[in-house]
Simulated assay, not measured.
Amino acid sequence: MPKTDSIGLTSSQVRAFIDDGFVKIESAFSTELAQQCRDELWADIDLSPDAPENWIRPVVRVASKSSPPFIAAANTPDLHKAYDQLVGVDRWLAPKGLGTFPIRFPSAESPGDDGWHVDMSFGDNPADFMEWRVNVKSSGRALLMLFLFSDVGSDDAPTRIRKGSHAAIARQLLPYGQAGATLRQLSATGYVSTEECEVERATGPAGTVYLCHPFLVHAAQPHQGTRPRFMAQPPLLPKGEFDPALPPAPVQIAIRQACGLTFPTREPLQGVRHD
């Protein structure tokens, strides 16, 4: 997809990403694209927005989508510019689709998947996802992203985010080195190091995208609203390992800052708009 001019993130937004672990971008893709994507997802799950009597499960999952509307939503000029600013120019792969999609429905039943966690980035045992890993270099994942395909209010099962939790997780991962920690190892702690973090909720109109640090601790929650919530939670994949010889991008700066490591003194927020 050819790149066009984009306003991009301000220096305050990039600094908020480093300190808080996420940045919210409204109108990252159009409401028309959001509607097209919802229509496809309704068809995939064989349900209808006009037949709520059939919404009997609290959550229905779609693994991935790679049709044109989803590719377009993930690759708008504004998002490409933000990927450059947070991960580094030419250091990420343009998404060829989106997924997964936890579609949440109004329900008094527990969804059963609402525990706090960090998304894992690599592993070789698909039969035991608890053995998948994440390391302090964030191998295999440049960003965690939350794409809102429906309007999401406070009652519509917005993803809960522990603000600043990525810093505590970076410090927790440091002793594990290149091998990283498994989901089982991280979950065993109950993420107690992040319990005091302020909780933010990923709300916004359809077309909103939250670009999150890979180490951000987050959780689902029950849906207490009236209309289903459509969201994708894909990774942004890196082109390769972060190169220590290059100026660090904000995703790396956040890790080094959390671990008390130094980074080059050259301006770390190049390519951003200053407030």
Rank of each mutant, 00 (worst) to 15 (best):
R229S: 11
G8V: 05
Q172P: 01
D39S: 13
L41W: 05
P234E: 09
L174R: 14
T100H: 11
Q270R: 13
R266S: 15
D124S: 12
I45D: 05
A170G: 05
S107R: 06
E53C: 01
H213P: 07
S67P: 00
M120Q: 14
P102F: 12
E131C: 01
G271P: 00
A157I: 02
Q36R: 14
G180H: 04
S66R: 13
L246C: 09
Q233T: 15
L173Q: 07
W92E: 08
I56K: 14
S6R: 11
D128Y: 06
H274S: 10
P52N: 07
T262Y: 02
G153R: 10
M145A: 14
L86A: 03
S27K: 15
Q221I: 03
H274T: 13
K239A: 02
F129L: 15
K3Q: 13
P247V: 01
L236Q: 07
D151R: 05
K96I: 05
C259G: 02
Q257H: 12
L33I: 11
P238Y: 06
A249K: 05
S165M: 05
P175E: 08
R266V: 15
A245R: 13
C259S: 03
R15A: 12
N125T: 11
K65G: 03
F147L: 10
R171Y: 04
N135F: 08
A254K: 08
C259H: 07
D124Y: 07
F105C: 10
Q257G: 01
A170Q: 08
V87R: 07
F230H: 11
K81G: 04
V199K: 04
T100V: 08
R227L: 12
M120E: 04
D39Q: 15
G97V: 09
D90L: 09
L183T: 01
A72R: 14
I161P: 00
L148G: 05
H213K: 04
I169T: 09
H117L: 07
D151M: 09
R273I: 12
D84F: 02
I45S: 03
P205A: 14
P158D: 03
R91A: 11
A206N: 03
T262K: 13
M130L: 10
A232V: 03
Q221H: 00
H218W: 01
V134S: 08
S11R: 14
D155R: 13
I253Y: 02
T189H: 15
C212R: 02
H218V: 01
P106G: 09
Y191P: 00
P235L: 00
E53N: 10
S121G: 09
V209C: 03
L246P: 00
A245D: 14
R104V: 13
Q185K: 09
V272F: 10
D19K: 11
P158W: 06
P234G: 03
P248T: 03
G99D: 04
R133G: 07
F147M: 08
V251D: 11
